[in-house]
C-alpha cells in the first residue's frame, strides 16, 4: 500500500458495495435515531430522562456492567495466565471453550444461568444457605455479565502474555526481586493496556446486553431493571419517542465511557513506553 496509484482492480465496485451496505444498515438507522430524538423539545427530553425509573435503570446497568467487567479482570487474567504459561492436560479444549459465551445464543445462557442460580438450583442453593439471593437481583445480572464478558479479557490478554519476554522476568528474579516485585514491576505494566481493552470491551457489551440478563434479572422496576429492557418496555407501550431518547442517551454515555477508557489506555501506554 503506497501513495502511488494502485494497479489493483475493483476499487470502485468494492467501495460502492461497502458504502451502500454501511449506509443502508448503519448510517441511515443512526440518523433515524438522532432525528427522532430531535423531534422532542428539551423539556420533554428532560422529562423522559430525569424519570426516577429511567435513572434507576441506568444505575443498575452501569453498576452491574462495571462490577462484572472488574471481576473479569481477575478471572480473565488468571485463566489467560494458566492457559499461556502452564502445561495442562486437554489445553486446546479448555482454550476453545473460552469462546463459548460468544458462540452460545444469549437466550440459552439466560435460561440456564437462571436455573443454576435460582434458590433451589445447583449453585443457587449454596448461596441460599448463606442467605444470599442471586437470581432476580442485581447480583444475578452481574453473574450473567461475568459469563458474557469473560472471553473479552482472556482473548485480549493472551496474545500479550505470549509475546512477553521471559528473559526480563529471569533477570528481575536473578537480581534479587521477589516474585511479587517481579509481577508488579515487570509483568503487570505491559499487561495493563490489554487489561484495560478487555475491561472496556466487556463493560460495553455488558451495558447493552439483553438476552442473557432478562431471565435472571427479575426485572423489578427501580431494583433490577436494566436499560435495554426499559427500551423494550417503552416500545411495547408504543412510546417510541421515549424508547428513542433512552436509546440515544445510553449510546452517548457508553461512547463517552469508552473514550475515557481509551484515553486512560493511551496514557498508560505512554507511561510504560510500549506500543
Amino acid at each position: 500500500m503506497s501513495q502511488r496509484r494502485s494497479l489493483l482492480p475493483g476499487f470502485g465496485l468494492s467501495l460502492g458495495v461497502t458504502v451502500f451496505t454501511v449506509s443502508l444498515l448503519v448510517l441511515i438507522p443512526l440518523v433515524a435515531l438522532v432525528t427522532k430524538s430531535a423531534e422532542l423539545s428539551l423539556g420533554e427530553l428532560w422529562h423522559t430522562l430525569a424519570d426516577r425509573r429511567v435513572l434507576a435503570a441506568f444505575r443498575v446497568s452501569f453498576s452491574t456492567a462495571f462490577a462484572a467487567a472488574f471481576f473479569n479482570l481477575f478471572l480473565g487474567l488468571i485463566v489467560a495466565w494458566v492457559l499461556v504459561r502452564y502445561p495442562l492436560p486437554l489445553k486446546r479444549a479448555w482454550d476453545s471453550l473460552i469462546d463459548l459465551p460468544f458462540a452460545l445464543p444469549t437466550a440459552v445462557a439466560g435460561i440456564v444461568l437462571t436455573t443454576l442460580y435460582s434458590p433451589n438450583g445447583w449453585l443457587g442453593q449454596f448461596f441460599a444457605e448463606l442467605g444470599i439471593r442471586v437470581a432476580f437481583t442485581p447480583l444475578g445480572i452481574t453473574i450473567a455479565l461475568i459469563f458474557i464478558g469473560l472471553p473479552f479479557v482472556v482473548r485480549t490478554v493472551e496474545p500479550v502474555l505470549q509475546d512477553l519476554d521471559r528473559q526480563q522476568e529471569e533477570a528481575s528474579t536473578s537480581l534479587g526481586a521477589s516474585r511479587w516485585q517481579t509481577f508488579r514491576r515487570v509483568l503487570l505494566p505491559p499487561l495493563v493496556p490489554a487489561l484495560l481493552t478487555g475491561f472496556s470491551l466487556a463493560f460495553a457489551r455488558g451495558l447493552g446486553e439483553y438476552g442473557s440478563v432478562i431471565f435472571i434479572a427479575g426485572n423489578m422496576p427501580m431494583k433490577s431493571e436494566i436499560v435495554p429492557l426499559l427500551i423494550v418496555t417503552k416500545l411495547e407501550q408504543y412510546n417510541y419517542p421515549g424508547a428513542t431518547v433512552i436509546a440515544l442517551a445510553s449510546l452517548v454515555v457508553a461512547f463517552v465511557m469508552l473514550l475515557i477508557i481509551n484515553g486512560l489506555q493511551q496514557w498508560t501506554r505512554q507511561r510504560t513506553g510500549r506500543d
Binding site: 461497502t18 438507522p29 447493552g208 446486553e209 439483553y210 438476552g211 436509546a247 461512547f255
Partner: peptide, 26 residues
C-alpha cells in the same frame, strides 16, 4: 471512518439495533 462504521454494530446494544429499524420501517 468507514472502518469505524463497520465496527459500530459491535458496540450497539442489540435492542437498539432492533429499535432503529422500527423507527425506519415501523
Amino acid at each position: 471512518l468507514l472502518t469505524t462504521l463497520i465496527d459500530l454494530p459491535f458496540s450497539v446494544s442489540p435492542v437498539i439495533a432492533g429499535l432503529v429499524f422500527i423507527l425506519i420501517f415501523g
